[in-house]
Computed example of a mutant assay.
Amino acid sequence: MFIPFEKLPDYARVWVYQADKALNNAEQNHIQQVLEEQVNQWAAHGVPLVGSVQVLLNRFIIVAVDEVQNQASGCSIDASTRWLKELGAAMNLNFFDRSVAYVDGDEIKTVEMLKIKSLVAEGIIQADTIIFNNLVPNIGEFKTNWQVAASASWMKRYFQQVAL
């Protein structure tokens, strides 16, 4: 059963999917419509799940479920992953982009993990650059720790001064 994202509690479980490119308005609307229909039919062992989906910042798809109502099973989680794979294939998009997304001015850019250190050395990614932590487990963490300064993330090691 689909409900608006903002009506879900902070303990609701989330999965953050990152598109491999910025999405235009038509793509975002299509994704939202298709995934709302899927969430509306989402079930675990035949029992409906209460969940939501939201497209954010022209790049991210957030899928959420309130597991107090009914826990998501392995099969229901696999089903949600399949939605994104099928939708991505139909739209020629990859929603499983594992590069690091960061804010650069008014734009969200991505960089391969292996290139992070050089971008920090070049000053392109700085300590206060906002990066996206797509591994947040629930809505509460999503609200507080999805967008964080690079120096407050796993990237902090690149900004620590070496004491002599």
Rank of each mutant, 00 (worst) to 15 (best):
G140M: 06
S118C: 00
A127W: 08
R13V: 11
N94Y: 05
E112N: 09
G140W: 10
W83Y: 12
Q147G: 13
Y158K: 01
I139H: 04
V39G: 06
M155Q: 11
A72W: 13
P137W: 03
Y11L: 12
S151Y: 14
Q41S: 15
V162E: 11
I139L: 10
K85F: 11
S52Q: 12
K85Q: 15
G74K: 04
L114I: 15
L35I: 06
N70P: 05
D78E: 11
Y102K: 05
K109F: 00
W15F: 09
V136P: 01
L57W: 10
S73M: 06
N70I: 05
V111Q: 02
G74T: 00
A19P: 01
I139D: 05
D10T: 09
L57Y: 14
F95Y: 04
V63H: 08
Q18D: 04
H45E: 13
F5P: 04
A43C: 15
V47K: 11
D10Y: 13
R82C: 09
I61P: 07
L119G: 03
N58W: 15
L119T: 02
D106C: 05
I3C: 13
L49P: 06
W146L: 07
G51D: 05
R157M: 11
A43N: 11
I116N: 00
F142I: 02
I62Q: 01
I124C: 01
T81A: 14
E67A: 02
A152T: 12
A26L: 15
K143W: 08
L114H: 12
A90Y: 15
I77E: 00
K143A: 14
I116R: 01
L87S: 10
L49H: 10
I62L: 03
L8Q: 06
V120K: 01
I139E: 02
P4E: 15
N94C: 05
E112D: 13
P9C: 11
K156P: 02
K85N: 14
L35M: 05
V34C: 10
L23G: 06
D10E: 14
L8N: 03
E6W: 13
N92A: 15
F142E: 01
L114W: 08
E122R: 09
Q160C: 04
K21F: 11
I108M: 06
L135K: 10
K143I: 03
D106T: 10
E122F: 02
I108G: 03
I124Q: 02
S76T: 13
V47M: 15
A101N: 07
M113I: 14
I108V: 07
E6H: 13
G140F: 06
E86S: 13
G140C: 09
D97P: 02
V34P: 07
N25S: 12
L8S: 03
L56K: 14
I61A: 12
A152K: 08
I62N: 00
V47S: 14
K21H: 07
M113K: 10
Q161G: 09
A19W: 00
W15E: 06
